[in-house]
């Protein structure tokens, strides 16, 4: 066959590496606010690119859920392992993925996180621990248990985190994965990102248990229901669960309550929402909550907030322009990495 290994794809990052971006989020509340704004702008831009016919394929926006993503990123070490799910633009950016990698993947360009071969539901950036993103519901749960097993056997001190939706708690992988992780007391954290809907169905119409995290009791795991609109509450809960895992006390199941502002995917106008639900959640917007908190302690004022917002907008615009000017992977790319190179 005429297909060789081919050149490694050179990725042009933002001036900051993913790790630098991640360290900011861990260290600085203002950086967390900025990252949440960046995520919001990225989602807005991705919608525009689709509307303009420049992007194609399936995509899932997380507007309204930014505090979940950024809170997890701040509470988990960059050396820990995270397995995300399809609605992962926010988690990716929060963990450190650059806007170029996200926009590039969305636009199917070789500068994308996985060379444009996976699409925006498949973000990965191993330098900050985002080792895989699954698009079959619940699949990441036993995988995280396995990553935690590896950490335990190797004594690496690493923790593995699976992030998945409210719709992903009724599949075998959830139950089998949680039971095994509990039985083996693995250093894992399981995070249900309850945005109230799995596709077009409200979570309480598809699950017999309320709150969802109470499922943990069946597997003898600690659990907590958390305000997912408050980034500090997310950091506290995820941080405590990570700590428990790290000191050998086993896994925790967390349910972060949040809300999806837009439809499941592009074509969904969300006609199934009860009247007033969206407005009630928008009144608890995670960006506003953190902005007001930082304003109250004098860390920012209205001008500074506007400035940060504008900076995020520009960064996303620049990333989109860069991605649009970048090439699509060559056909040989689809043959590379199907199998790993032998290492002996």
């Amino acid at each position: 066959m005429a297909i060789g290994k081919g050149p490694e794809v050179v990725t042009t990052y933002d001036a900051k590496t993913p790790l630098m971006r991640r360290e900011e989020v861990i260290a600085d509340p203002l950086a967390r606010l900025e990252r949440m704004m960046e995520i919001r702008h990225a989602e807005q831009k991705i919608r525009e690119l689709h509307e303009e016919g420049l992007a194609w394929g399936s995509t899932h926006s997380c507007d309204g859920q930014e505090a979940v993503a950024v809170g997890i990123a701040a509470a988990v070490a960059p050396t820990d392992h995270v397995v995300g799910a399809h609605r992962g633009h926010g988690l990716g950016l929060a963990l450190g993925l650059t806007p170029e990698q996200l926009l590039g993947e969305t636009l199917g360009r070789s500068v994308g996180a996985v060379e444009g071969l996976g699409g925006s539901p498949h973000l990965v950036e191993t330098s900050v621990g985002l080792v895989f993103t699954v698009t079959l519901m619940g699949a990441g749960i036993p995988i995280a248990a396995g990553l935690a097993l590896a950490a335990e056997v190797q004594g690496s001190g690493r923790v593995a985190v699976a992030v998945f939706g409210d719709g992903s708690v009724n599949i075998g992988a959830f139950h089998e994965g949680l039971n095994l992780a509990s039985l083996w007391k693995l250093p894992a954290v399981f995070v249900i990102e309850n945005n109230h809907y799995g596709e077009f169905s409200r979570y309480d119409r598809t699950t017999a248990v309320e709150p969802l995290a109470r499922r943990a009791e069946a597997y003898d795991l600690p659990w907590e229901l958390v305000d997912g609109q408050d980034v500090d509450a997310v950091i506290a809960a995820v941080g405590a669960a990570v700590e428990r895992a790290r000191v050998g006390e086993g896994p925790t199941l967390l349910e972060l309550r949040t809300y999806r502002y837009f439809g499941h995917s592009r074509s969904d106008r969300a006609p199934y929402r009860p009247e007033g639900e969206l407005e009630a959640w928008r009144a608890r917007d995670p960006i506003r909550i953190l902005g007001e908190r930082l304003e109250a302690v004098g860390m920012v004022d209205a001008d500074a907030l506007a400035e940060i917002d504008e900076r995020c907008r520009e960064r996303i615009e620049a990333a989109a322009a860069h991605a649009l000017a970048s090439p699509v992977a060559d056909p040989g790319a689809m043959f590379r990495h199907v199998y790993p190179e032998p290492n002996r």
Binding site: G108, G116, L117, G119, V328, A329, P331, A333, M334, V338
Partner: peptide, 10 residues
Amino acid sequence: DVPVPFTRDL
């Protein structure tokens, strides 16, 4: 004999 690639051209 490869996975289905995302980007439209491919």
